[in-house]
Design a protein around this nucleic acid. Structure first.
Lengths: 252, 252
DNA sequence: GCTAACTGTGTATGCCATAGAGTGTTGTTG
DNA sequence: CAACAACACTCTATGGCATACACAGTTAGC
């Protein structure tokens, strides 16, 4: 295989493309373009990103961008990948559980500061530098644990999938709370009332019981519950992993 | 609050819209429209769905659809929700673990038979009938367990998020294997070779070790590993939930 | 200096979602 | 039964979109 078989965006993102020998110096850079795109997406979501708008942001014609990027889809993938910023070193070895917790929270933070990333289809195997960095750090945390590579990859997938779900959920809750006005609980109350209109006892018996018992109207949205709900899923996952790894250590 | 505050698509999906008293009988139905849309999406993905194509499929002008649907986005949401089909009764009570396992596998199956559903942004609180059905069944499984409503909802979110991730992943793996040709392992080998080009030891030290040790080239793709990888995440989650519930039963 | 390679521009095409006015049909009301 | 109001659907724009293609200007190497 040659490097030519790599997708164009992967080659440019890793700097594997040889620089041009003749012709004018490029007036733009991939970094500048993705940065402009990210600025637009952060402001107006993915729907606010068009090649024309990105070009205008840079003071350039639309078609100029195509000298740097193969297509809009490729640009968006590059944008998403380059949102990966904050990455510390994580505890590993016996403290792997803390390491993975921190890693997942960082992935969630990262996704929540760029909510449009979650609107993208999940790609198959990662090849772009940002996702590879994430993967590398997670594998480093798990280094030395009695898991084979497939299990480690499954673990990373599990946690990053969870992070994505969580990030989308909380971004949307934050957005609808902001839209509903000052009151934090207002959005939750609204939702409870909407549910009440729609949840018939015949089609949704269990749900109907919970709704009419008032479980949705109260206590879903206050501060303490937020913190608990934020960590519930992650802690279950980590506990499950811990049990598995402990069993392996015991010789299973 | 009145029912008017519900989104239009939610009202029509639940049949809360009163039928017209005057004027010609509608020549179409929401069901026919969503079914046509689903047919297109199953064939060509979400990109293959346009109002014009759906209309042509039904022998009608584009604008006729807007008598039934508020916007294309609303149509797509309705399409996604109405893909919910197979739903059995699941074991509950002490057998909740089997119930949730089966429920999750059904959600995965459902998503994999309509891969375009995963291209949609995850919505906030579910209001459409399909998602409500899923939610109701899951709550029924957990009925009687010592969890409060917030924890039950977190559990459902955790599992459905995992199902989404898993479904996307396996759909894409299946697609790339199909694209790579007859050989099942070919796609995995390709990926391993691509990784080798891109994973530098400086930026991705741990990953580089795994890649050059050959862990990606062999054994990722064979039949046994597929089955194991498919269940790894789910079993960790279920184990984690089990530990939590057991602790609650013990009086925690 | 000539030329090939390269960067950015201008223009054009075809698809898209959707607005708004117009046409015919139907149940209801006087 | 006649008139009308409510409705279903069609026709015709409009503005945005991604992107193909031909071009003009710029630079490095021969």
């Amino acid at each position: 295989m040659s490097a030519q078989e790599l997708p164009h965006e992967v080659r440019v993102a890793h700097g594997l493309e040889e620089a041009a020998r003749r012709g004018p110096k490029p007036g733009l850079s991939l970094e500048a373009i993705t940065a402009a795109g990210i600025r637009l997406a952060d402001a107006d979501g993915l729907a606010g990103v068009s090649m024309a708008k990105v070009a205008k942001e840079l003071g350039v014609t639309t078609m100029a961008l195509y000298r740097y990027v193969e297509s809009k889809d490729a640009l968006v993938r590059l944008m998403a990948d380059s949102t990966v910023s904050t990455l510390r070193d994580y505890p590993a070895g016996p403290a792997w559980k803390d390491g993975l917790r921190q890693w997942t929270l960082d992935v969630i933070d990262n996704a929540m500061s760029h909510p449009w990333v979650a609107e993208l289809p999940i790609t198959g195997g990662p090849l772009l530098p940002g996702s590879l960095t994430f993967l590398d750090r997670a594998l480093a945390i798990l280094d030395g644990q009695p898991l084979d590579l497939g299990e480690k990859l499954s673990t990373v997938m599990l946690l990053s999938g969870h992070a994505r779900t969580e990030a989308v959920m909380w971004s949307q809750i934050a957005a609808s709370r902001a839209a509903a006005g000052v009151s934090d609980v207002q959005a939750d109350t609204d939702y409870a009332e909407q549910l009440a209109f729609v949840v018939s006892p015949e089609r949704f018996p269990t749900l109907h019981r919970e709704v009419s018992a008032g479980g949705f109207s109260e206590g879903i949205g206050d501060q303490d519950d937020d913190a608990e709900m934020r960590s519930f899923g992650l802690e279950r996952i980590l506990d499950g992993l811990e049990a598995h790894i402990a069993q392996r250590h015991a010789g299973g």
